[in-house]
């Protein structure tokens, strides 16, 4: 078994209301110097050894992310 991490983020050119709301709140809470926040999703998958990268990429592209508005990165990490 291996652990695979998929990070899904709104595409840079797409409006990210979630991140914007956090960014706007930070100065109100007294935290200065943060110019931008973007909010995405983090998935952790426990994956059998015979699942190849192409399959993982397909899972990310067709299911975990919405390619119309989101980018994604698939990483294998140490279990």
């Amino acid at each position: 078994m291996a652990r695979v991490v998929v990070d899904v983020m709104p595409k840079p050119e797409i409006l990210d209301p979630q991140g914007q709301a956090v960014a706007n709140a930070l100065p109100r809470l007294g935290f200065d110097g943060i110019t931008s926040v973007r909010q995405g999703k983090h998935f952790e998958l426990e994956v059998a050894d015979d699942v190849d990268d192409a399959t993982l990429a397909k899972i990310a592209e067709t299911f975990l992310a919405n390619p119309v508005i989101e980018d994604w990165v698939v990483r294998r990490v140490e279990a």
């Binding site: 709104p10 050119e13 797409i14 409006l15 990210d16 209301p17 119309v68 508005i69």
Partner: peptide, 8 residues
């Protein structure tokens, strides 16, 4: 670029 808009 897709002609998609995201609403807030």
């Amino acid at each position: 670029l897709p002609s998609v808009q995201v609403g807030d």
